[in-house]
């Protein structure tokens, strides 16, 4: 049985598992998800975009709560989706886990965690990647 779509996921493993972004070798700006050129330096950045591993620590800029979920996420509703500003600058959209919805706050410190994102039914591949959870340090203070 052939299952399509695995190649696209496989290409994105470095960014999904380890938050590997790109840094422009010309101006130093950091991008996530990774891009092939810097929109500021344009042709000057070509061939100078370097891989950079992001720390996975950041802060919630804003969030929303999903009540009507897309396929593969129905079992998790209601769940928060946040825009997280990473320490290195880029903002990424991700699910917040290991936290009660009423405890999610703007400005909350979060860190990335490794989770199942989706799967192609009961027979297809399982796609893993990042979600965010409250920072360990914060838990220690509670």
């Amino acid at each position: 049985m052939t299952i399509g779509g695995v190649a696209r996921f496989w290409r994105e493993i470095p960014q999904r598992y380890n938050l590997i972004g790109k840094q422009c070798g010309s101006c130093g700006r950091i991008y996530f998800p990774p891009r092939e050129s810097c929109p500021y330096c344009r042709r000057k950045s070509i061939g100078k975009m370097r891989d950079i591993k992001l720390s996975g620590k950041g802060e919630i800029v804003t969030y929303t709560v999903i009540h009507v979920a897309p396929h593969n996420f129905e079992g998790q509703v209601p769940y928060p989706i946040a825009i997280v500003q990473l320490e290195e600058g880029p903002r990424i959209t991700a699910q917040i886990v290991d936290c009660k919805i009423e405890d999610v706050k703007i400005g909350m410190k979060v860190e990335y965690t490794f989770r199942r994102i989706q799967e192609d039914g009961y027979t297809g591949a399982i796609y893993y990647g990042y979600k965010f959870k409250p920072c360990q340090q914060k838990q220690n203070h509670q």
């Binding site: 079992g75 998790q76 886990v97 965690t113 490794f114 989770r115 199942r116 994102i117 399982i126 893993y128």
Partner: peptide, 16 residues
């Protein structure tokens, strides 16, 4: 485990 946790995710978190 929640729906998004399995032996692979637990192993990765423990290894990290």
């Amino acid at each position: 485990p929640s729906l998004d946790q399995d032996t692979a995710t637990i192993s990765v978190e423990a290894a990290r």
